[in-house]
Design a protein around this nucleic acid. Structure first.
Lengths: 226, 226
DNA sequence: TCCACAATAGCACAAAAGTGTGAATTTTTT
DNA sequence: AAAAAATTCACACTTTTGTGCTATTGTGGA
């Protein structure tokens, strides 16, 4: 028992030494790098272990550092932060990446997130929130600025809606909607599928009901996702 | 008469000396540069006057050489062939550029062509075709691999079609088609635009005629291109 | 000034689409 | 095997669309 306890205490001491979250910074602007470094090191449980101004220095050095977290600026001249994360994340699956950017450009956000970024903050984030976010991401969370979170949620809802439609419509209904979306008339669809126009109308009635629309045009628009 | 004849002969000799098509090569791979050079010089009417391995050597030297034709590899590390042509073409409007690439990436193709490339060949082009293409481009043609030509033609057709629609439809018609493409009914469009349903129908009639369609769905599909 | 054309609007008729109700048959799920 | 859902079809009725023809008014160019 005594030995066990001793060992446990020793272990905890080691952990405490290592317990600072090691962070690397990638940003092309010198003043931002320096300010971030000062900010991070001002925190008791965060250790900034390296700053890098561009793609090449980042991909060449960060893998060896094995930081817990990387703060990555998106908008860098030449190879962007997106390129960095594409290169780095596959090599360091244990490292969490937080993207920093001035703008909430949706394309960027999704590219970053699908390439393995865990967090996405706008640069107007307060220092305090940034430090919190680092801890959060280290603990498996996904810190995001409100605007970003909203975008992500919206797109998620959109995906859900799309899947729900697919889920709701039967194979045949989906097929008929597909033909309708090529500009075909009921009659033509009927001929194409070797069924009567009445049947097509039956299906369309159900489709409209499920999609909450009242015309072919509206249904087609929903089909072509929007 | 005798003098005139003499002069003419002399002139022709000069022209023959100059008549070889001068070609410069830009490619990062040494073996390709050398093979191309040998190929070009094996032709009686082509003279390879320089080869360059990268962006900097190309932009620094090619303008002074004033070649008739430049063979430009697209896929070079660092600054690409696209960057080269962006830099060079404005300085040498008389020089024709042929892009060489392994892949028929549509974005590349269009960027190259809009930046002044006259020809675009895939690297699987045979030596004979390549020599022909150099002569062709020198004579004002636009040699392209079949796949490339097809892409260009397709996108061209698409542009044409879209412009044609816009060209044909009046402002009001375009507006009404826009509303229709939101899934609105005639009645709703009429209310929205403070006109009678009959007027909307009048416009739609003309629109359908111009777009060669027979239903709202078809018109909307054309409006949403594709 | 005259003409072409855009924008407006109306009437009439036919075709197509949308809606309510019901039902037979097949397939899938439970 | 029973229940549920999907597929098929039908009839009736209303609304919306598609189309042909016509007409008035305003506007910009030949």
């Amino acid at each position: 028992m005594c030995d066990l306890l001793k060992e446990e205490v020793y272990y905890i001491v080691i952990m405490n030494k290592k317990n600072k979250i090691s962070v690397a910074i990638v940003d092309d602007k010198k003043d931002i790098r320096e300010n971030l470094e000062i900010l991070l090191n001002s925190s008791a449980n965060i250790d900034c272990i390296g700053t890098f101004p561009n793609y090449h220095s980042a991909v060449n050095n960060i893998p060896d550092l094995e930081p817990d977290v990387v703060l990555m600026d998106i908008n860098m001249p030449g190879k962007s932060g997106i390129d960095c994360i594409k290169n780095l994340k596959p090599k360091m699956l244990q490292t969490q990446f937080i993207m920093l950017t001035m703008y909430d450009d949706s394309e960027m956000v999704f590219e970053a997130l699908t390439n393995g970024a865990a967090g996405y903050l706008l640069k107007r984030t307060t220092p305090h929130e940034l430090l919190d976010s680092i801890v959060e991401v280290y603990n498996g969370g996904s810190p995001m600025s409100m605007e970003i979170a909203r975008m992500v949620v919206d797109s998620f809802k959109q995906e859900l809606r799309k899947n729900k439609i697919k889920e709701k419509l039967t194979k045949r209904e989906w097929e008929i909607l597909g033909h309708l979306s090529k500009g075909m008339r009921y009659k033509e669809i009927a001929e194409q599928l070797y069924i009567s126009v009445e049947t097509v109308r039956s299906h369309l009635r159900k489709i409209y009901e499920k999609l909450q629309v009242r015309s072919a045009t509206e249904a087609v628009l929903k089909y072509l996702q929007k």
